[in-house]
């Protein structure tokens, strides 16, 4: 497949919320250095749902931690709403893959969702309102007093999502949130994310290694190379806004997009970030960097 079948991203001015520019991350320690990320540049517009997909070991989590302000990039900058990110910003929430390790096991569901709101110094009534709304939104109206470990994996991840939603962030970062749940639960959770996105108008950056998931969820898919990582392609997903597991996934366009991303990932596996691939036109790579 060549570039003409797939639209390049709109280059017109957008309202950029999150801007990642020239981010590099090198780990040093024990006398050796590892370059996890070489040079990543992209931006996410306000209200967008962008998926980042890449082969395993592509430094996806490292990137996400740099964006979240948990890790300091070796070079480059992350800017959120005009503010340089140097520590976790208040307008950002993160959902991690390891739901079993990201919820406080000594707190009930209610307390887990409420704690960040207490840190925001919201009054009690407002906190309760947000907790109720968020838990209802993820379909967990009945488990306020349960402990996370009493719930199934999928339900635990719903609690983590509710916590993020109740926090009322501008940007929601999700790090392979559904990698550890079973397929059926996963489909439900994907639809939950789409519906929350529609309902709340929040900006979502969704990291995954699952190609189908990225195409199904995203308005745009950023394809990463293997480590040391660069953006290989910035692909707009021109599927209709109403998506359903049954219809969307069996459509022709979905298959084409999936096929294309799959090819790119296969290329990425055999190629380090520096040299451009034989198949990808320089155009596409350039656009990925130019947005």
């Amino acid at each position: 497949m060549s570039g003409d079948t797939f639209a390049t991203p709109q280059t017109q001015d957008r309202d950029v919320l999150l801007d990642v520019r020239g981010v590099q991350k090198i780990y040093t320690g024990h006398g050796r250095t590892v370059e996890a990320i070489r040079d990543l540049t992209f931006s996410v517009g306000r209200g967008e749902l962008v998926c980042i997909v890449g082969p395993s070991g592509a430094g996806k989590t490292t990137l996400l931690k740099c964006i979240a302000g948990l890790l300091e990039p070796t070079a480059g900058t992350v800017t959120l709403d005009g503010q340089r990110v140097t520590r976790p910003p208040q307008s950002m929430a993160v959902v991690f893959q390891e739901y079993g390790r990201s919820l406080y096991p000594w707190k009930t569901v209610q307390q887990n969702v409420e704690l960040p709101l207490k840190q925001k110094k919201l009054p009690k009534a407002r906190r309760q309102e947000l907790v109720n709304e968020a838990l209802a939104a993820v379909g967990l109206g009945e488990v306020h007093d349960a402990y996370p470990w009493q719930l199934s994996g999928g339900m635990q991840q719903r609690v983590a999502i509710a916590r993020a939603v109740a926090y009322q962030p501008q940007v929601l970062l999700m790090d392979e949130p559904f990698a550890a749940v079973d397929a059926q639960t996963r489909a439900d959770l994907e639809d939950l994310i789409r519906s929350l996105w529609h309902k709340l108008g929040v900006t979502i950056l969704f990291v995954t290694h699952d190609i189908e998931e990225s195409v199904y969820l995203g308005q745009r898919v950023l394809v990463l190379s293997s480590s040391p990582t660069v953006v290989m392609e910035d692909l707009p997903i021109d599927l209709p806004d109403e998506r359903s597991q049954l219809e969307t996934r069996s459509g022709r366009r979905f298959a084409e997009l999936r096929h294309h991303v799959y090819e790119q990932i296969q290329l990425a596996k055999h190629r380090k970030g520096s040299e451009p691939g034989p198949d990808a036109t320089p155009d596409v790579v350039a656009h990925g960097n130019a947005v």
Partner: peptide, 9 residues
């Protein structure tokens, strides 16, 4: 959990 706590300040 430590990262989560930092994210939520």
């Amino acid at each position: 959990l430590s990262d989560t706590s930092r994210c939520y300040r």
